[in-house]
Amino acid sequence: MSTADSATIRRKSLKKTITDSRAIQLIILLIGVVILWSLISAIIERPDRYLPSPMTTLFSSVDLLKKGVLLSFYADTLNRLVIGSVIGIALGIPFGLLLGLNRNIADMFYPLMNFFQSVSGIAIFPIIVIWFGNSNTTVMIVILYTSFFPIAFNVLSGVRSVPMRYISAARTLGASRFQIIKDVLLPGAMPSVAIGSRLSIGFAWRAVIAGEMLAGQAGLGNMIFAGQELDNTAQILLGMMLIGLTWIMLDHFLLRPLESDTIERWGLVQR
């Protein structure tokens, strides 16, 4: 009886993995995409210029790896992302807090922030270039600028969304203003900090790529840009894949788990 049961369950789980598993679905999808891609590149004229086959694209990575540039590009880009977004977030959190805590300050700076947020990091690039030239500083400023706003706005609304009754409760316990901030408002705003950080890093990722392209600084962005100038389409495709995959990995395995953990742990804000 029990062996039959466990056999059924085992068979069940096996079939389940085959039909339902995201991993298997992904593999099937991937194979499909690669086949389609190969087909298209086989029929078009001058595939090396317009759409190199998956194999060619893959080999171009071997080439770049041998030259040792691929890894250093990768490291440069990630490095910029981390430094730029960390500084952006570190500046955005206190600013958002300040605005969240004081209605007057918030009303005063909200429109200004809104305006500057809509002046995207990419659009300010030509000015920053005039100020700092085609340099790493320029790229960093663009990243920093882009990542500042999402976190600041989120922290602001996070602090605002802490229910009044928590604050009143703390006050009836005799908490001081500082204690209320530390014990109620900050923890209450934690989920928003997490959500905002993920958004900020997402925006920063786009900004790194654009910044590197525009300012000609070594990295993945410049790799695809150079691919175009060198007529090396395989390098462009490789760079695009790396850009997409890196973001998905980063988001899926680091940022999203962090976000949901924080929300779960600190998610005391009910609406």
Binding site: R49, Y50, I122, R206, I209, A210, M213, G221, I224, F225, G227, Q228, D231, T233, I236, L237, G239, M240, M241, I243, G244, L245, W247, I248, D251
Partner: peptide, 18 residues
């Protein structure tokens, strides 16, 4: 998900080639 994470800026060089 993939297209949205590469979409926009990263397509520019390829678009120029095309």
């Amino acid at each position: 998900v993939f297209m949205n994470s590469v979409s926009g800026i990263a397509w520019i060089p390829l678009a120029v080639v095309w």
